[in-house]
């Protein structure tokens, strides 16, 4: 879903998409383009989304009841589809956050040890 100078693997990219979207939507409702801009800003340009691939993920999350969508007129007068986090999405995000913490913590332990030994 992203194209990045770091050449992240497709699996990692796919696995991180949902928690990223849910985390941003936890801050408030948003729409596709704004979500991409936010990820770009947060990653300081390291994560560049292939824009069209975001939408299937958003639709899947909506089908799963984690987010809901609504067409609304934006300040520009143009209609936009806004997404908002649902209770199921909040629960899923809490669970995914814990899982990512465990993974990141474990890798930090390993790589911390490797850094000391090299």
């Amino acid at each position: 879903m992203y194209s990045s100078s770091m050449q992240m693997t497709k699996d990692l990219i796919g696995a991180s998409a949902a928690p990223l979207i849910l985390s941003i939507l936890q801050e408030g409702e948003s729409y596709g383009y704004a979500l991409i801009q936010r990820v770009r800003a947060l990653s300081k340009g390291q994560l560049e989304w292939t824009d069209g691939m975001l939408y299937p993920v958003l639709h899947r999350l909506e089908q799963q009841g984690m987010i809901a969508s609504k067409w609304k007129k934006a300040d520009s007068g143009r209609e936009r589809k806004y997404y908002v986090l649902q209770a199921d999405g909040r629960k899923s995000l809490a669970m995914q956050r814990e899982q990512w913490r465990v993974i990141v913590g474990t890798l930090n332990e390993l790589w911390g040890d490797l850094a000391c030994s090299t």
Binding site: G52, Y55, P56, Q63
Partner: peptide, 17 residues
């Protein structure tokens, strides 16, 4: 270009339930 080709987008949407 950043959005992706219609075929690539359709293929991703095709994976949805």
């Amino acid at each position: 270009q950043q959005l992706g080709t219609p075929q690539a987008i359709a293929s991703e949407f095709g994976k949805l339930p």
